[in-house]
Write a protein that binds this DNA or RNA. Sequence first.
DNA 1: CTGTTAGCGCCTTCAA
DNA 2: TTGAAGGCGCTAACAG
Lengths: 397, 397
Amino acid sequence: MAVTLADVAARAGVSSATVSRVLSGDYPVAGTTRSRVLRAVAELEYVVDGPASALAAASSDLLGILVNDIADPFFGIVAGAVQGELDSGTDDRVPRRLAVVCNTGGSPERELTYLTLLQRQRAAAIVLTGGAVEDPAHRASLAARLRRLAAGGTRIVLCGRPPLDPLEPDATAMPGPDAEAAAVPGPDCEPDARPVAAARGRSARRAARGAVLTVAFDNRGGAHALTAHLLALGHRHIGYVAGPSERTTTRHRLAGHRAALAAHGAAGPDRAERLTVHAGGYDRSCGYRGAVELLRRAPETTAVLAANDTVALGVCAALRDAGLRVPQDVSVAGFDDLPFSADAAPGLTTVRLPLQEAGAVAGQLALGTRPAPPGGTTTMPHALVVRASTAVPRAGA
Amino acid sequence: MAVTLADVAARAGVSSATVSRVLSGDYPVAGTTRSRVLRAVAELEYVVDGPASALAAASSDLLGILVNDIADPFFGIVAGAVQGELDSGTDDRVPRRLAVVCNTGGSPERELTYLTLLQRQRAAAIVLTGGAVEDPAHRASLAARLRRLAAGGTRIVLCGRPPLDPLEPDATAMPGPDAEAAAVPGPDCEPDARPVAAARGRSARRAARGAVLTVAFDNRGGAHALTAHLLALGHRHIGYVAGPSERTTTRHRLAGHRAALAAHGAAGPDRAERLTVHAGGYDRSCGYRGAVELLRRAPETTAVLAANDTVALGVCAALRDAGLRVPQDVSVAGFDDLPFSADAAPGLTTVRLPLQEAGAVAGQLALGTRPAPPGGTTTMPHALVVRASTAVPRAGA
DNA sequence: CTGTTAGCGCCTTCAA
DNA sequence: TTGAAGGCGCTAACAG
């Protein structure tokens, strides 16, 4: 049906192997032959058959990107940056690799499902972005799955979620470097993760092969900085509209928040608990509902931290609808610094995460363009961005 | 390296053909055999080799989605909806198809490039979303390319851009139905497109095969409604911060705007021209710069229409920075009704486009789940959403 | 530098 | 209902 290598070969008067070599580029071919082949290719409008080529070469040029919500700019920015790396490396007009963006909707099952689909396509690399679901069963099966894929040669990169748990000593028969790579805790590891001292130091070079690499955000540190900012302004009744409770992102940000409160000698755990509302998701309506609930529970609240910028907008809307002004009556802060945050009215105080950069790094790691970092984990810096949505609490408070 | 069909067959004590049949499902196999095979599959953690299967079956389960900017929620929402259709149809836990989201960045070359990549992967269908570039050369080569793909059996769906131009009578040797399908003008066709009367009526059923289908937005109508709304409020100096000039979306929205002005006997073409600023893109900063330029050219402006909601936010920011209040001093309206628009302060008056629905329809068309519409084009309705960013002009104006 | 020759892993007739 | 066998289009040795 379609035109094949053999057709081109016949037209150019060469063997199909020669055509293949011309097309793949990385093999010496005489100039005249090459141009003759290229002409035939053009005349016949030949397009390589990806599946056949992948089968024969036992490799593919697909890069998978898993996102929790493709409609959320957070993921769009990261995914776009990952994809951008595909086009950069090559000088050719046509990038060789294809990025496959898969929308899991935050569902663990779909995450696993898409992993299967990508494995089926023999994806060269897979980048998992955004917070991970914390359910122990899923956590374990996902980790096992990823390790197996990595061991099979698929490059695996986690972007925006903590590294895989360290392996149990006997969990793998192969003396692979995965264990060490995963064992050095990044900032988003469990606070109580015991550093495996013996594992350090010898893995940096080997980590690139078979290891699960990580590009982490400092969610904990960001939330800490944000809370410290509010405390410094004089706030003592700080509410927190958190994301879904079973997500790593949620827990780490909350932990940073609580740590800052504790360091300040501010609230006891039960009060902090009362001032924390778990929204069901990361969208605007969750923020709205969360704020309503928070005001009901704790009308004395003078500041609200939100799970992210989108949620923060919902919080602002709820406050406005309740007749409260931001920041005169209540301060509000978000997280991520998405593009619209600067344009909200008032401009949103937030923590900027370098999404673009993180995506680019993840992409390079996935392509093998960038050496694996020591320990397997790169941590991106955060920056507190103070805008107009936070101010000193009103006098009466 | 990986476990193959033959391995499973050996384990289950059957032939590889039987395993293949069990896995593909659509073939009679004895119950006991089937369960034995499935057990072997599970024990070996067998995963089908996509490329091999695509090669042998001469078909693939990849669906391509081209977007102009994956970080823009407009595209995220549409792409997410398209992808959602893949998971719905099947009752299985594992959807068979994989969506490939490709980010063109609005570049014609990359659009063509990704088309090649998808063709190479033998994608079953391709959905092109968002406004198209209007450069005649690109337009022609893209159309030719899409028609060829469609003729080759790839389902092609345009979502959010106008249908392909009608074919020249002799442009194709095959008596394919494409010509008719593309010939019935949707609302976003050229105003002067001559309806090919003879073509009507006989194509609806056949359009599904080999035709390029379209899901269109009524950009023209939406802009008309928005402008009429401002005119009704009493505005007479209405500025327009348009998108990049060479995009279909830009031109159609602008045309609707101008038509409304003309119908109202409002502005002469030269004045309308002076009040129109072309931003270089669809992002916030373009809106900001566009508004600054507009204020410079026409300080008497009392209302500004923006290319879309994101641009509108930039416009609002520029106005605020210029000491102007929205809507007291200047009214602002956007387009699309993205989620954040409701939360802007003031809430943005805009035109709601059913992005989710359009994406779903496009997905169904691409999967063949939904019959092709008569004429090949489905037009989605728009709705004017009036919020707080538009009001009557200030008294002095 | 170029041609020849085997497969890659699976699907799909064709027989049994 | 199941098995055997050929080939999908390409790449990667291995010769020449």
